[in-house]
Amino acid sequence: MSTPPARRAAPETWAVPASWAALLATAAMAWVLTVRSSSGMAPGPGTMGLNLWGFLTLWGLMMAAMMLPAVTPVVALYLRTLRAHATGWTRAGRSTSLVVGYLCAWEAFGLAAFGAAWAAGELAARAPSAAPWVGALLLAGAGLYQVTPLKDRCLSHCRSPVGFLMHFGGYSGRLRDLRVGFYHGAYCVGCCWGLMAVLIVAGVMNLAWMAGLAVAVFLEKTWRHGKAFSLVLGVALIGYACFVPWNPSLIPGLYVPPTMSM
């Protein structure tokens, strides 16, 4: 007697919801660890006293917290493509490799973020009068990037990654899923690097800005009005930049309060 259809379908039925739950739980844990790591650290310029490895560790936690909710639809789609190639725990392992590869792309970007944060700290300390203007230009640049064709291309890839999932069929070997994740992560970096530059300007450990940007990334990538939202966000960043030169405290990542500079 053949296996009842409902029994065969059960593993497939639960695979996608389980992947969503696992990723969201991981993101929640990353938020908890990030908040604990920031305990006693006020948002400010520089790398918060962290060396490169400490910064990259914290950056990895931050990216897991901010980005994993937005990547859950991609992982779910990837699981569906794996049905013909893997079963059971093999699917879970391969989708995990995809997520690891994705985070590796953001960790690589963390090297640039470390350099930018260090430069921001130096600028705030050595040229406090120029720092607000630089910050305003960076915010305006991030806003302008929101309306560029490159942003639109990367965002379209993140919103509809069918093409890259078809491309992965040409990959082979044990590292194929890591390569797919890194490939998608590179597009995500291309989509969101401007918003991460905003995070540097706002202060690396600025939890309020982290939460706001995480919501913005999620809406850009998953909401049906995500492209329009991206344009509105760009205009908002440009508008915010206009107030910065006359109120430097709006950008803690490039501002040293008088009490700290004494």
Rank of each mutant, 00 (worst) to 15 (best):
M1N: 09
S2N: 09
T3I: 14
P5F: 06
R7G: 00
E12V: 13
V16F: 08
V16I: 14
A21F: 12
A22W: 01
A27N: 00
V32G: 07
L33W: 08
R36T: 08
G44P: 09
P45D: 01
L50Q: 07
G60E: 06
M63A: 10
A64F: 02
A70H: 05
V71I: 15
A76N: 09
L77Q: 15
T81M: 08
L82W: 07
L82E: 15
A84Y: 06
S95W: 00
T96V: 14
V99M: 01
L103Q: 03
C104N: 03
F109V: 03
A112G: 11
A112I: 08
A113C: 03
A113M: 14
F114A: 07
A117Q: 08
L123D: 06
A124E: 03
A127F: 06
P128Y: 10
V134R: 01
G135W: 05
L137M: 13
L139N: 00
G141A: 15
P149N: 03
L150R: 12
K151R: 14
K151P: 02
L155V: 07
R159W: 09
G163W: 04
L165D: 06
M166H: 14
M166N: 11
F168A: 15
G170I: 02
G170C: 04
Y171S: 11
D177I: 07
D177E: 15
G185D: 13
G185W: 09
W193D: 01
A202Y: 00
G203E: 04
M210A: 14
A211R: 13
G212P: 08
A216I: 13
G226V: 03
K227A: 13
V232R: 12
L233Y: 10
I238Y: 05
Y240V: 05
I251V: 15
